[in-house]
């Protein structure tokens, strides 16, 4: 990957669907603590996706089995790729461990 003189602004949206809400929550909570101390130019947020209609969610609470990860990079592309790499690896580790 080339690092261009004027860094690109890149947005990455990842959605991972698990087999249960419980599994999704466990994995999401396992990833969040490392979501700190990013180098400048990189930011990330993790949250459950909004599943179902608003009315249904208010009645019974979110039953999402999907977690959404949004990354925004205005810095080095290689940093973004490395972060994504580790993130996906961790998500896969967490999921493996549950099963």
């Amino acid at each position: 990957m080339q690092n261009l003189p004027r860094p690109l602004e890149i947005h990455v949206n990842i959605a991972i669907t698990f087999s249960s809400t419980q599994e999704m929550n466990s994995v999401m909570n396992a990833l969040i603590p490392d979501n700190v101390n990013f180098p400048s130019g990189l930011s990330m947020s993790i949250f459950p996706s909004k599943a179902g209609s608003r009315k249904k969610r208010l009645q019974s609470g979110s039953r999402s089995r999907t977690v959404v990860i949004k990354l925004t990079s205005t810095g080095q592309v290689s940093t973004l790729v490395n972060t994504l790499d580790e993130l996906l690896e961790h998500a896969s580790v967490a999921s493996k461990v549950i099963h």
């Binding site: 490392d34 580790v93 461990v97």
Partner: peptide, 17 residues
């Protein structure tokens, strides 16, 4: 760092689930 994080992810997952 990277090594610590793998163990932590495993631990958090198991602890949470």
């Amino acid at each position: 760092g990277p090594c610590l994080r793998v163990g932590a992810v495993v631990a958090r997952t198991v602890s949470g689930f």
